[in-house]
Amino acid sequence: PGLLEPTSCLIRVAKSAATLGIAIEGGANTRQPLPRIVTIQRGGSAHNSGKLKVGHVILEVNGTTMRGKEHREAARIIAEAFKMTDKDHVDFLVTEFN
């Protein structure tokens, strides 16, 4: 990988609590074109996993790209991934770089 290539990281969050417990900002056609985590709530599944961090930019959710998705669409995809009962986890591909 070249120096300018952002490093991405796959993070699996187990559905260990009733909520995912993250707040996101951003989406296509905003200043932050990919959703970025702005809050992680204590006691939520994301907090329990210990791996997602404030500032992480979400590239993919369960293999679905966030690129080109407007804020509400990105939020809907994440919410549905958490609600889906066929999986006990949600996979996030994230990067720390914008």
């Binding site: 417990g21 993250i22 905003t30 200043r31 702005v38």
Partner: peptide
């Protein structure tokens, strides 16, 4: 001129 300066801020959604 940077394009992103003309783009609006995003709303925030709690999930």
């Amino acid at each position: 001129r940077e394009k992103r300066l003309t783009l609006p801020p995003s709303e925030i959604t709690l999930l």
